[in-house]
């Protein structure tokens, strides 16, 4: 058996293999509903993988945002569009494929310079990080160093981020309106129904 081969590594490999399958399926499938469902599955799988990497905070965020809210948001977006994605002609795919290949090669090139997972001598762990880990226990009475850094050491920064997110949400709400049309609205430029479907909200009012 290989050196350092643990059962947890096998579980990680299973999770990552399923992530790859889901990612390819999201790209290949045409049914938008299936893609929305698969994105939920992708977020579930990646959060399980984050837990296995000891990144519990990230897994928590992924669970709340990826699995819960973004599925609902994607469904709301699907109300405004078609249910099927149109196939893209092959000539239009060549340019993006070129860019993606270049970026992927650059990332594979950069992987060689990354420190190993959990390396105590990596740059992130050796300079300021060690000071924070040592000082958190005395400075801030919190067991989690990540929470201590986010909510206490750089709390003004986090407060600014929260304000930005709040402003973005408020702006979107003001644009879409709070008059009860959210989720029922269908795109009709110049009175034309571009979705090719009848407005179901109007249909309901006609025939109660």
């Amino acid at each position: 058996m290989m050196e350092g081969f643990t059962p947890i590594l096998l579980l990680d490999m299973g999770l990552l293999a399923m992530l790859v399958v889901v990612a390819f399926a999201v790209v290949r499938l045409r049914s938008l509903f299936a893609i929305v469902m698969l994105q939920g599955v992708y977020s579930l799988l990646s959060a399980a993988w984050f837990v296995s990497l000891d990144a519990v905070d990230v897994a928590f965020t992924e669970a709340a945002v990826g699995a819960g809210i973004s599925t609902v948001l994607m469904l709301g977006a699907m109300l405004l569009t078609e249910r099927e994605a149109k196939p893209v002609p092959f000539q239009k795919q060549l340019g993006p494929l070129f860019i993606v290949t270049i970026v992927a090669l650059a990332m594979f090139y950069a992987v060689g310079d990354m420190p190993a997972f959990g390396d105590a001598l990596s740059p992130a762990n050796s300079y300021v990080g060690a000071d924070y880990i040592a000082a958190t226990k005395n400075d801030i009475i919190l067991p989690n160093v990540v929470t201590a850094v986010l909510a206490s050491y750089r709390s003004f920064d986090t407060f600014g981020e929260v304000v930005v997110v709040y402003m973005a949400g408020l702006g979107i709400l003001l644009l879409l309106g709070l008059n009860g049309n959210a989720g029922k609205w269908r795109a009709k430029p110049n009175g034309q129904n571009i979705t090719g479907r009848k407005n179901t909200a109007e249909q309901r009012e006609d025939k109660p």
Binding site: G68, L75, G180, G183
Partner: peptide, 16 residues
Amino acid sequence: IATIAVLKFFRYSALD
């Protein structure tokens, strides 16, 4: 939450 949203989507074609 996600399952309820999906079922509402297909039952009423609206979320609210």
